[in-house]
Amino acid sequence: MPSETPQAEVGPTGCPHRSGPHSAKGSLEKGSPEDKEAKEPLWIRPDAPSRCTWQLGRPASESPHHHTAPAKSPKILPDILKKIGDTPMVRINKIGKKFGLKCELLAKCEFFNAGGSVKDRISLRMIEDAERDGTLKPGDTIIEPTSGNTGIGLALAAAVRGYRCIIVMPEKMSSEKVDVLRALGAEIVRTPTNARFDSPESHVGVAWRLKNEIPNSHILDQYRNASNPLAHYDTTADEILQQCDGKLDMLVASVGTGGTITGIARKLKEKCPGCRIIGVDPEGSILAEPEELNQTEQTTYEVEGIGYDFIPTVLDRTVVDKWFKSNDEEAFTFARMLIAQEGLLCGGSAGSTVAVAVKAAQELQEGQRCVVILPDSVRNYMTKFLSDRWMLQKGFLKEEDLTEKKPWWWHLRVQELGLSAPLTVLPTITCGHTIEILREKGFDQAPVVDEAGVILGMVTLGNMLSSLLAGKVQPSDQVGKVIYKQFKQIRLTDTLGRLSHILEMDHFALVV
Results as ranks from 00 to 15, higher is better:
Gly100Arg: 05
Ala231Tyr: 07
Ser175Leu: 07
Cys275Tyr: 01
Gly134Ala: 09
Ser27Lys: 11
Pro16Ser: 01
Ile261Trp: 04
Pro2Cys: 14
Leu251Gln: 11
Gly20Leu: 09
Glu270Arg: 01
Arg45Tyr: 01
Leu124Gly: 06
Ser32Asp: 05
Asn228Val: 01
Val118His: 14
Leu268His: 01
Trp208Gly: 01
Ile152Cys: 01
Arg18Tyr: 12
Glu37Ala: 06
Pro46Ser: 07
Arg121Ser: 01
Arg125Thr: 05
Trp43Ser: 06
Thr191Phe: 05
His22Leu: 08
Asn216Met: 01
Asn113Met: 06
Pro12Gly: 07
Cys244Arg: 07
Thr146Lys: 10
Cys275Glu: 04
Pro229His: 01
Phe112Asp: 05
Glu239Ser: 07
Gly20Gln: 15
Arg18Leu: 08
Arg276Asn: 14
Asn212Phe: 08
Arg196Gly: 09
Leu220Asp: 01
His17Asn: 08
His67Arg: 01
Val255Trp: 01
Ser32Cys: 01
Gly162Pro: 11
Asn149Thr: 01
Arg121Val: 04
Thr260Gly: 07
Ala253Ile: 01
Ser123Val: 04
Pro170Phe: 05
Val10Thr: 08
His203Ile: 01
Lys119Val: 01
Arg121Cys: 01
Val90Ser: 08
Pro64Val: 01
Ala157Pro: 11
His22Tyr: 07
Asp245Trp: 01
Arg132Tyr: 01
Glu110Tyr: 10
Gly31Asp: 14
Ser117Val: 05
Gly100Pro: 01
Arg58Lys: 10
Lys30Ile: 04
Arg209Met: 08
Cys244Asp: 01
Pro6Glu: 12
Pro59Val: 01
Gly116Val: 08
Asn225Tyr: 01
Ile142Phe: 06
Phe99Trp: 10
Arg164Cys: 10
Thr146Pro: 05
Gly100Val: 07
Ser175Val: 09
Leu77Glu: 01
Ser175Met: 01
Ala195Ser: 01
Met89Leu: 14
Ser19Pro: 11
Gln55Arg: 14
Gly246Asn: 01
Asp140Tyr: 08
Lys75Glu: 05
Gly96Tyr: 05
Glu34Gly: 10
Phe111Leu: 08
Leu230Thr: 15
Gly162Val: 03
Glu144Ile: 08
Arg190Lys: 12
Lys271Met: 08
Gly258Leu: 01
Ser19Ala: 11
Ile167Val: 01
Lys39Cys: 07
Glu104Phe: 04
Lys94Arg: 15
Arg121Asp: 04
Val118Asp: 01
Tyr223Pro: 01
Glu213Leu: 07
Pro74Phe: 07
Pro59Leu: 11
Gly259Val: 03
Lys98Val: 10
Val10Asn: 14
Pro273Gly: 09
Asn212Ser: 12
Asn228Asp: 01
Phe99Tyr: 15
Lys102Trp: 06
Arg58Glu: 15
Ile264Ser: 01
Gly134Asp: 14
Val255Leu: 07
Asp120Val: 01
Ile264Cys: 14
Ala226Asn: 09
Arg18Met: 07
Leu241Phe: 09
Leu230Gly: 01
Leu220Gln: 04
Ala186Lys: 01
Ala231His: 15
His17Pro: 10
Arg276Val: 10
Ala60Phe: 06
Glu171Gly: 01
Leu156Ile: 12
Val204Gly: 06
Lys36Gly: 01
Gly162Tyr: 10
Pro64Ile: 15
Arg121Leu: 01
His17Val: 13
Pro138Asn: 11
Asn228Cys: 06
Pro200Ala: 08
Ala265Trp: 06
Thr146Asp: 04
Pro64Cys: 05
Trp54Gln: 11
Val255Cys: 15
Asp35Ser: 07
Tyr233Asn: 08
Pro192His: 13
Ile142Val: 12
Ala207Arg: 01
Glu176Leu: 08
Lys177Arg: 03
His65Phe: 01
Glu62Ile: 14
Thr135Tyr: 14
Gly31Gln: 01
Tyr163Arg: 06
Lys30Phe: 01
Ser73Cys: 14
Ala38Ile: 01
His218Cys: 13
Val118Ser: 08
Ala159Ser: 01
Lys177Trp: 01
Ile264Ala: 04
Asp245Ala: 03
Pro138Gly: 09
Ser61Thr: 12
Asn113Gly: 09
Leu230Lys: 12
Lys94Met: 10
Leu28Ala: 10
Arg190Leu: 06
Gly57Cys: 10
Glu34Leu: 01
Leu154Asn: 05
Thr141Glu: 01
Leu136Arg: 01
Lys39His: 03
Asp179Val: 06
Glu104Met: 01
Arg164Trp: 05
Ala226Tyr: 08
Phe99Val: 01
Gly274Pro: 05
Glu62Phe: 07
Thr150Met: 04
Arg125Ser: 15
Ser61His: 01
Cys275Arg: 06
Asn93Glu: 01
Ser202Ala: 09
Lys172Ser: 05
His22Cys: 10
Lys108Tyr: 10
Pro138Trp: 09
Ile261Pro: 01
Asp35Arg: 08
Glu40Val: 07
Asn113Tyr: 05
Pro78Arg: 01
His218Asp: 01
Ile240Leu: 01
Pro46Ile: 10
Asp179Trp: 01
Thr13Ile: 08
Arg161Trp: 07
Asp140Ile: 01
Glu104Ser: 11
Thr68Val: 10
His65Met: 07
Ala114Arg: 06
Lys271Val: 09
Pro46Thr: 01
Ile80Asp: 05
Trp208Glu: 07
Trp54Glu: 07
Pro145Cys: 06
Phe99Glu: 14
Ser174Ile: 01
Gln242Pro: 05
Gln243Pro: 05
Pro145Ala: 07
Thr235Glu: 15
Glu187Met: 01
Glu131Ser: 12
